[in-house]
Design a protein around this nucleic acid. Structure first.
Lengths: 356, 356
DNA sequence: GCGCGGGCAGCGAACGTTCGCCCAACCGTC
DNA sequence: GACGGTTGGGCGAACGTTCGCTGCCCGCGC
């Protein structure tokens, strides 16, 4: 075992400056009345010895750790990463530490992540793991014991949530396509179970209905949130509905897959099929053609969630139990006015299976 | 202030089962000799009360926190994210917690991140912030006090490092181009100060020299690690050296920018210019054309670094101070055999500024 | 019947803090 | 010269653990 080079403590500092360790503590926290002379002596000694306060001990008596537990899903998810960045920055700004743990896609957060956080006595928990939506044990465990803010909808529902306006996202994306003259608009959704997916789909349907356009299950496919999903699922949609001229993808990565799959069919983009994504990832600006998308303010979501959580930790009762952040459309090259008849016919010919 | 609902402690459990709290402690840690009867009684009481051990207090007496400090750069960097994922997973597997903090691109890690970690008495530190390479105060602070493993080269150099074989990465990428018949090969490098950049460039030059090809500063531009860098810098390279037929980008994102910039000049890809990236990001598979790249095992790097760090924490003296992980080439559609004369001429004509 | 060893449990101390209370000395005031 | 207030600093306790030592009681062997 590595000899754990004993850290210097207040007592060491006290010894060196000839006062009681309690006085040292007073000085080092700015409190109490201590003469200028001894104060200086103590400060000096502390810096000579390289004193570093022990937050563990302090937490023990103060009954708060100034630490927030962050339970996250997959780091590789660019959106989540941005959230983390926002949350981390805000926590740091307010002098809080971050205990990080991630939960595996299949795993239950309840069995490892939560206990780990409780043992470390975090002051609050930020939930940023989409897959925990399904964890029914969760809402029970969280109950009333600790301030919690989540970025996802939680089953039991007693927890404060910060999230983008997903319904609006779906609506904006779809309306954009409608305004370009598209009449048959497909949708590639995220994972079915998730609230986010339902909201975006609701927005999609609202935009269609508003304009009296067809909303049909045959126009919708579940594609998840990965490129591979779009790649795999788009052909199915196209086969069933060769008449679609535009596609709303609930996630930018899916849109990337969709673009690739469309190109593979020989379509010219965006003339022969418009695609709009959702999320507003950086990488969406560099697809070919550049992806029209709805920007979700991930960073701000993370930061706002942390801000709210820290307010809760400091004893504020939340006035609002749900914060919804606005989204907005970014128009790029992957969407174009609905093609004129010739284009449509060419596509139909190529599809080669006229519906009887 | 929120009433900090008093947590249940060993004493509470002890009281409920009619033994001393020390005996309770024995039972709950599996140690000591305790009769089956009382053991059962204590366990029962603990679970009734919902006892959760306080790791803070335990750390205090054990003199170790079972927590690792993770100092990272930008979360949005996909490579770094993968590293984090690997490190986090490994730490979790071994029952360690992770204190996360990131350092801003401009900021010095020495002034906030390190003190924060020391105050929390982490057992070791994993450095994953490229920008800390330049922090000269760092190697001094780290000195001998704490086990540290870094993913980046550190100035003073007394610290164990885990990194990919960057020289080999540059070499593999470039040799691939050479083997395709390219004779004038440009390079878009990462940030100049970084060791990584130098290594990859060294590999690039070695591959060229090995085949007796030109290595010239006029073939090299600094582009950083972002898409925008490639986008901005590629035209400069092209203007100076319209004769390049292939480009090695030290980072996939730069390659994405380069592809876009090349397309903007009207070149057909990959026929009129090959591009090879480096990093092996997921997104590289979905560019148009799909990017040939060198895969860097980010996840494994993170995991291995954590594994090594935990070994150090447990008192193992490192036998090797530097672990280098292998990389390998992934061939995709963005590289093609050097174009025949016609293609070259067409490009020259289009460039329109014959060198006198 | 006596001594001894082992199983079981308790006790005190320590880890490094913060906090409230107490005490001594000093000052100025009537 | 006694008194009250202020200032500077010490002391004890508490936070929730772990660990080593001590001591009790019982059973067993001679």
């Amino acid at each position: 075992m590595r000899r754990p080079t004993r850290h210097v403590s207040v007592k060491d500092v006290a010894a060196r400056s000839g006062v009681s360790f309690q006085t040292t503590s007073k000085v080092l926290n700015g409190g109490g009345s201590v003469s200028e002379a001894t104060r200086a002596r103590i400060i000096r000694a502390a810096s000579d010895l390289g004193y570093v306060p022990n937050l563990q001990a302090r937490s023990l008596v103060m009954q708060r750790t100034r630490t927030i537990g962050l339970i996250t899903g997959d780091f590789s998810d660019p959106g989540l990463s941005r959230c983390l960045a926002g949350a981390e920055q805000e926590a740091r700004r307010q002098g809080y530490g971050l205990m990080l743990t991630s939960v595996e896609p299949e795993g239950s957060g309840t069995e490892y992540a939560l206990p780990a956080m409780m043992e470390r006595r975090v002051d609050g928990i930020l939930l940023a793991a989409p897959q925990m939506e399904e964890d029914s044990a969760l809402s029970h465990v969280l109950d009333r014991t600790l301030p919690v803010v989540s970025l996802n909808h939680i089953a039991g529902d007693p927890v404060t949530t910060v999230c983008p306006d997903d319904e609006q996202a779906g609506y904006l994306a779809t309306r954009h396509l409608v305004e370009l003259g598209h009449r048959v608009i497909g949708a590639l959704t995220g994972l079915r179970g998730h609230r986010l997916t339902q909201s975006r789909e609701a927005g999609y349907r609202r935009a269609l209905e508003e304009s009296g356009l067809e909303t049909s299950d045959s126009l919708v496919e579940e594609a998840g949130a990965e490129v591979a999903g779009g790649l795999a699922v788009l052909p199915r949609l196209l086969e069933r509905r060769p008449d679609v001229t535009a596609i709303f993808c609930q996630h930018d990565l899916v849109a990337v897959g969709a673009l690739a799959a469309l190109r593979a069919t020989g379509r010219r983009l965006p003339e022969e099929c418009s695609v709009v994504g959702c999320d507003g990832l950086d990488s969406a600006a560099y697809t070919t053609p550049p992806l029209t998308t709805v920007r979700v303010p991930f960073y701000e979501i993370g930061a706002e969630a942390m801000r709210l959580l820290l307010k809760l930790v400091d004893g504020g009762r939340p006035r609002t139990t749900m914060v919804v952040l606005p989204v907005h459309l970014i128009t790029r090259g992957s969407t174009a006015p609905a093609s004129s008849a010739p284009g449509r016919e060419r596509r139909a010919r190529r599809a080669g299976r006229p519906r009887t």
